[in-house]
Nucleic acid binder design. Structure first.
Lengths: 242, 242
DNA sequence: CGTCAGATTGATATTCATCAAGATCGGTGG
DNA sequence: CCACCGATCTTGATGAATATCAATCTGACG
């Protein structure tokens, strides 16, 4: 079992148990490893996909590019997220996947994944679920950009990322690494860089979070979540029959 | 075959062919009809779902409510959209589904849908695809709210809705009905009502669209799409093996 | 020491929300 | 038929939020 599949199992089993046969099946998938430098594209918008990638280390994001060259990041992805699973169904990419840090990924051919859907319905539902959770996260993001103040949006984002990093063992006791420049954060929040800088300053002023370089420490999750209006329901972090 | 299933077949087959057996299987699903008055909830946030609804007439939307009572609509759904299919996997709703107009819907038990995933992998993938397209639409929406001007956002929305209405036969020669108040549109765009009103005025001033009462007529789709930076790739309106 | 990317800050212009008033329009009861 | 009513649309005025422009500052690194 490769680290990639181990991570995937961990992520999937967070939401429903996996049988030994299912784990076996995942382990048998063809995998092609690749690494990407910070700033490069794992997948280009408008490209045709014949395989889907699963990120094993590093931070990635989905990016929608606008005509004038500006971009909006529509999702951040942590290791273990099957980032590109959407491509299995979409076939033609509507967005690109970019490496926010150096990162490594594993590509799994669509032929293998389609075969999996033919013989493992429950596992298929869990993979489907993972794309559905992506959609739920995006909905929360729409609500944040559309109706929350920048400060609340940022607090919300940090709460979410903390829980998601924790699931894959990359966060504990309130600490995790978020290797994004303020300019990247601006592309997530849908704000200008300057305003993002001021929003981060406002966040620091609350005292709920310390954020130096790329290290985040949540001092008071309770109050941070309260300020953000954060409710983790949308992350579906509950194990139950699916 | 009920009208609901006919609509669903039409929507699914837009993206890949359905075999007679698959159509048969869809037709055999248990369906419970229901109607909803404008403004009511088809599905409440935080509720536990045991069935999923498919809207057969009327306009529905997904809504994320904020603590202060304001709301952000994260998606609009046209008849034939399997709006609530996400609930099959999520089990607990992260958002509510509201009736923007009087509408009718059909509820299909999760037991039936799960059974379908056990015996019809290709059909399962097409249903999965429909939730993935929802996600793609949401990504475009994030880009619109975050980085497009309100006018461009509105133009983009109209282009998208026109194509989606057209797929289900509810739009032709540039015309369709959009029974939303400006206050509702504001909740979609993430703007105040007043600003939405001014944005609509700006839209009228372009001359590309006429919009009186609830009737929209696109006079010049070409230029409207150009102004919006609209690229329909994300709607996956292409039939191919999935 | 120089350079460069990123972070920070101040000044200014633009966009947008809010408040407050009308205007319009369809429906309803007398 | 007509006056009225509530919902919606529209408009102007004002202030707050945000983008933009232009420096300056900081720290890592050759």
């Amino acid at each position: 079992m490769t680290p990639a599949i181990e991570l995937l199992c961990r992520a999937l089993s967070r939401r429903d148990g996996l049988s030994p046969e299912e784990i076996e099946l995942l382990a048998s998938l063809t995998q092609k490893k690749a690494t990407f430098a910070k700033g490069t594209e794992l997948i280009s918008a408008h490209s045709r996909a014949y395989s889907s990638c699963l990120v094993t280390s590093g931070l990635t994001a989905r990016a929608v590019m606008l005509e004038d060259g500006r971009r909006q990041l529509t999702a951040l992805h942590v290791p273990g997220d099957f980032v590109d699973l959407h491509a299995l169904l979409l076939k033609v990419m509507d967005h690109s996947v970019v490496a926010m840090t150096n990162c490594s990924a594993v590509f799994i051919p669509h032929a293998d994944l389609t075969a999996l859907t033919e013989k493992a319905p429950h596992l298929t539902r869990l993979l489907w679920l993972s794309t559905t959770v992506d959609a739920a996260i995006q909905r929360e993001m729409i609500a944040s950009i559309g109706r929350r103040t920048p400060l609340k949006h940022l607090c919300h984002l940090i709460c979410e990322l903390y829980l998601r990093f924790e699931v894959v063992g990359l966060a504990e006791s309130g600490r995790f690494q978020l290797a994004l420049t303020q300019s990247d954060v601006a592309d997530v929040l849908g704000l200008s860089v300057v305003h993002t800088n001021r929003t981060i300053r406002a966040l620091r002023a609350t005292g709920f979070v310390s954020w130096r370089n790329f290290d985040i420490e949540i001092k008071d999750f309770e109050r941070l979540a309260d300020l953000a209006g954060f409710d983790p329901t949308y992350l579906s972090l509950v194990s139950e029959p699916r």
